[in-house]
Amino acid sequence: MTSVESLQVKYPNAPAWSIGDSAELADVLADLVVKGKKTASCGSLASYQADSASPAVGSYHIILNGQQDPVCVIRIMSLRLVRFCDVDEAFARKEGEGDLSLTYWRMEHQRFFTQAGSFSEEMELVAEEFKVVEVV
């Protein structure tokens, strides 16, 4: 199995992280990324500002599953700020989750941000789009 460390030799400074708020969700979302169904993600602007490894356009990131094993490497293709209430159907589809609808996206992301203690309809999100460059 390929390790995070060996991938970081090939992709220097690439942070390794999992998507979601549980090991089970990390497995599901990592699988969607590997299959090319999930090509976007988002987080609160506040969390990006607090994170020293915030993404930049062109940067590489190692995606981990729920067991913290690497499953693929992505490259950030675009970043933009958008308020939660302004996320559209097209972006919801790119997130690749549930039935791909904006209704599902809003429900699940409101749950996620509320659980994290930071939900507001007006909150600013960093919306990122990416492509898979290597499947491990």
Rank of each mutant, 00 (worst) to 15 (best):
R80F: 06
L7V: 03
G58R: 02
A46S: 14
W17L: 01
A26E: 08
Q67C: 10
C72M: 11
G20H: 00
F130Y: 12
A50R: 00
V135L: 14
P70E: 05
V82R: 15
W17N: 03
G117E: 03
K10D: 01
E129W: 05
S101P: 05
D99H: 08
T103H: 14
Y104C: 07
K94Y: 03
M123C: 13
R111D: 09
S78L: 03
G96H: 06
D88K: 15
G117V: 03
L81C: 11
M107A: 10
E24N: 12
D51V: 02
F91H: 14
E95V: 12
S18N: 07
R111W: 12
Y48T: 09
F84C: 03
F112P: 00
E129D: 11
N65E: 10
V33K: 06
D69L: 15
L45D: 06
I74P: 02
E24Q: 14
G98Q: 11
A90S: 15
V87A: 05
A16V: 07
R106G: 02
F91S: 12
T114E: 09
G58W: 01
Y11L: 05
R93M: 12
C85A: 15
P55V: 08
D88I: 15
L102S: 12
V9E: 14
P55E: 07
V4C: 06
Q49L: 12
V33T: 11
M1P: 13
L125H: 05
G20V: 00
V82A: 15
S59I: 03
G43R: 05
S18T: 02
I76Y: 00
Y60G: 02
I76M: 02
P12I: 04
R93Q: 15
M123Q: 14
V135F: 12
A46P: 05
G98W: 09
D51Q: 06
S18R: 11
G36Q: 14
L100R: 09
T39W: 12
I19M: 02
G36C: 15
Q49A: 10
V132D: 03
E5H: 07
E95K: 12
D88P: 12
G117I: 03
Y60T: 02
Y48S: 12
K38D: 06
M123P: 10
L125C: 05
E89H: 15
F130R: 04
